[in-house]
Design a binder for these strands. Structure first.
Lengths: 155, 155
DNA sequence: TGCACTCTTGACTTAGAAGGTCGAAAATGT
DNA sequence: ACATTTTCGACCTTCTAAGTCAAGAGTGCA
């Protein structure tokens, strides 16, 4: 249940592209702006290209840009492009696992976890992210002070 | 954003212990009941012991049992015992990361993700899990048909 | 005491991900 | 046509996840 470096980098790079607007942006500029290792970033951008999230052109005036409008790309799209499906259990979608005995209802729990993650990541678009006008669900979840603490009351 | 085999196994073993009640249960019986590799499971149970979630005794009448009542152990406790903190980004708690430029608001998004995961995992106790009477939040999140689909409309 | 039983611990193996290096391919401007 | 710029993709190293193996140490019973 952790967010990989790859996913974090991918979203940051995509945000930078969303903010840049139309023209192609060089990988090096993205790497500088977000302090991401350049070579690693280019692998990530390649993944994003294969998933149709960014486009790229080589050569002197080349670079990367968003293949779709920033308002139509969600953070979930970006994360899935580099990490694969969200909230899989043992590399298997939770609805495809059958639990036995006392753990029978665990499937519902994992599905609820996936749904709750999706409720955030599929609502926030790159346009929301760069404008800072995040959808209501984010505000509701970050309103409670304990949301900002590393550990909760129970430890 | 995936659930490790270790975490899944840990919750299943803990559920089995919760269902078993008082007496010590042998590792082998847990492994059989939940189809978990025995040697791997015993490493996991050791983690759970170190975190004070289970107790153990060696010898002929030995085995494992829950150190606390099943209604006082949440799934979040179990997951944290084997995976470490929930929803960390690049092995760092999201509130400790500072994002620059266009990605400035990404921190709020990751914190919202963590809060949403916690809202499920910290609500469900082992007692809830074995009885099948899951708290309302799970029912709400699993009610929508798309929660049960591997991919959503947008892909 | 001795012994069978079971947890405890550490070393080891394998597979894949994280992160980085290098050379080739392709597009642009002169 | 040619040099420059930048993406593209193969390869390599380090680290973690997942799982195995074998030996050590406490517990109960005869």
């Amino acid at each position: 249940m952790r967010v990989s470096a790859k996913a974090d980098y991918a979203v940051r790079a995509a945000a930078e592209l969303a903010a840049a607007g139309e023209g192609p942006v060089k990988g090096e500029r993205l790497a500088d702006a977000q302090e991401i290792p350049l070579q690693f970033l280019e692998h990530i951008l390649l993944d994003l290209k294969h998933q149709g999230i960014v486009s790229a052109r080589r050569g002197a005036k080349g670079g990367y840009w968003l293949a779709r409008p920033a308002a139509e790309v969600t953070i979930a799209d970006v994360v899935r492009a580099v990490e694969g499906p969200i909230a899989h259990v043992q590399s298997t979608p939770p609805e495809a696992i059958s639990y036995h005995g006392s753990a029978e209802h665990l499937r519902e729990v994992w599905i609820a976890v996936r749904a709750s993650v999706r409720s955030v990541l599929e609502e926030v678009t790159l346009a929301d992210l760069v404008s800072g006008e995040l959808p209501p669900v984010v505000g509701e979840l970050t309103a409670a002070p304990e949301a900002w603490l590393a550990s909760t009351a129970k430890g």
